[in-house]
Write a protein that binds this DNA or RNA. Structure first.
Lengths: 247, 247
DNA sequence: GCCTAAAGTCTACAGTGTAGGGACTGTCGC
DNA sequence: GCGACAGTCCCTACACTGTAGACTTTAGGC
């Protein structure tokens, strides 16, 4: 239809370049990353781009749509290649990638888990549905039936998101102060009611999220593998009747 | 010290009863439940209670503190009794309880997962830390070492929260329209890029969250049981050297 | 009755999302 | 060259937000 969807022309180094959706979104992401979600207001973002706040509404219908755009942008950083046949290794890699992604954009994580809650599955931005489709493809390629692939996906992604939330809850930016602040905070707790939690201060202080994720995944994946019609992996469970776990 | 912290007296049926923190919080919860998180503004809540908005600041320092109060209130509905010795059964029961709690208060779930992200562990409202302490107690009572109990807790709670998020994402209030809306939404997706997701419409429509949670828990719990110093459960894995999984 | 402290209210301010309409600018057909 | 046009962008304005600070009312204790 229209021969050019990109901004018409580079106006040269003199004029301010035309706004783009990508420019708006990445500026928004940058702002969220450096100053938190609440700093992302239309006025502030406009100021950051040297542009009237109202201009932004050409590139996102809403503030909500803007947030959706940011989550999409972040999720696009996640690479999934459904060709690989070793599904367990793939899921492991994806999990660690997503974990690192979350650690790289901690302020966006609330969006990642919250936005889908207010948007029915079919109406989400495509970018947020792509991982789901690709993982389904990966699983069916590995031998899972369609419905079973969905169940496996749910267990896997659920655990993954849960872990990320867990880890980010304990994450404190300033690692210098981390332990001190932790002790201080825990010390505030009534000793009688919270003996175990208080005693765990040192263990809480050094938390290896990657390792913990990996161990959880080991448990989960080997358990899930037993759902394969003919378990070809190193597992030795008896093969289950697959694909219709419930009548 | 002060002999009475409760409101001084019941002023009788004539005068409006004194405000209480509990009254404020439960009104807030009710409002959130019926009209969503965004409806919870100070003015609106004040109006709901027939009170000047500024009065609320006597019972919650902030809007943020108000939100914390609501999450605390909801989490208080969760009963955990660390006395029980059968830790697996207990964790199963708690998981289902929390799931039902989330389904009862879907609008509060974003708070449940989001608020802790912006509050370091030591500074959270006591009510939100109580489940953690109790589960730790439950696990150590079952034979786990302190540090191992923490790891088990993390895996368990992570999976649980992940599942709840997953389920609520697919949850649509109006079950009549559910399948129709789902089909409609999925139909919007490009057929070439999302073949599996589109094909899964019927499977997505009837989603038994409880069963799915239970299956995931079975996998996870039996895997976690192998961390017990001397596995006393029905499991037959060789006992691991417990309590220090990493040097 | 008064005294005191708590509880509730009023006013005001800076900041929010965004509707409606007007001004500008680059591109196209002539 | 010119005029038309459509896409961008900006300005103004409105209803609404959280909350600081000073004020008024209320409830007990004596």
């Amino acid at each position: 239809m229209s021969p050019s969807k990109a901004p018409r022309k580079d106006p040269g180094p003199g004029g301010r370049p035309r706004l783009t959706r990508e420019a708006v979104l990445s500026a928004a992401l940058k702002l969220v990353g450096s100053e938190g979600l609440e700093a992302l207001t239309m006025r502030r973002l406009g100021q950051e781009l040297g542009v009237d706040p109202m201009s932004l509404y050409r590139y996102a219908a809403n503030r909500a749509a803007l947030l959706d755009g940011v989550t999409e942008l972040v999720l696009n950083e996640l690479a999934i290649s459904p060709e690989d046949r070793d599904w367990q290794a793939q899921l492991r890699r994806i999990a660690h990638d997503l974990r690192l992604l979350a650690l790289r954009h901690p302020n966006v994580v609330p969006l990642l888990v919250t936005r889908p809650l207010s948007t029915p599955l079919g109406l989400r931005p495509l970018g947020t549905l792509r991982p789901l489709e690709k993982i389904l493809s990966l699983l069916t390629g590995a031998g899972f039936g369609a419905v079973n692939a969905l169940h496996v996906y749910r267990a896997y992604y659920g655990f993954l998101y849960g872990h990320i939330l867990n880890e980010l809850q304990e994450f404190v930016v300033d690692t210098e102060e981390h332990e001190a602040l932790l002790r201080l905070g825990l010390h505030r707790l009534p000793a009688r009611e919270f003996p175990r939690l208080r005693a765990l201060a040192p263990a809480l202080a050094d938390y290896d999220g990657g390792a913990e994720l990996d161990q959880g995944l080991s448990i989960l994946l080997s358990g899930l593998a037993s759902r394969l019609p003919s378990a070809p992996e190193q597992d030795s469970h008896p093969p289950n009747t697959a694909d219709s776990p419930s009548a």
